[in-house]
Amino acid sequence: MTGKAHCYKRDHINTDEIIPARYLNMDKEADLAKHAMEDIDVDFLNKVKDGDIIVAGEDFGCGSSREHAVWALRGAGIRAIVADTFARIFYRNCINNGFLAIECKQISEKVDSGDELTIDIENGIIINSSKNEQYKFLAIPGFAREIIDAGGLLNHIAGKVK
């Protein structure tokens, strides 16, 4: 997949910032998307196009377990997040939604907003065609791949339950 990077060169972007709690009386992606990142990046919705990628520093998605954070970003058109590291619950939520969350050390120092990134999952490489650079990332663990490939945890367990 290929998309334009929106880079946040800081750590600990938390789920309150991604989708403030005042909007947790809603849970549809389209409704949540209207307020994604609004407290820290008022222009976010104007800048983002379908297929774009968020790049950030360490501990992305820390704080509240609200899965609404994944839905808000996906609803806004984001198709993957590449961060130095992720907070645990947010990372689970991404996998469980079949949404790409990729850990790539120091990515936030190397990429700038507007760079065109291609994520090659099979080979574990991110290609930055704007800067003519490549970054290796840790392979997504096998079990997580299975869940992502199934389109999320509920699809993955559906056979078991039925």
Partner: peptide, 13 residues
């Protein structure tokens, strides 16, 4: 703590 999908999966399994 978990998200809603984890919660859903646990409820049915």
């Amino acid at each position: 703590g978990v998200g809603s999908t984890d919660l859903a999966a646990t409820l049915v399994t």
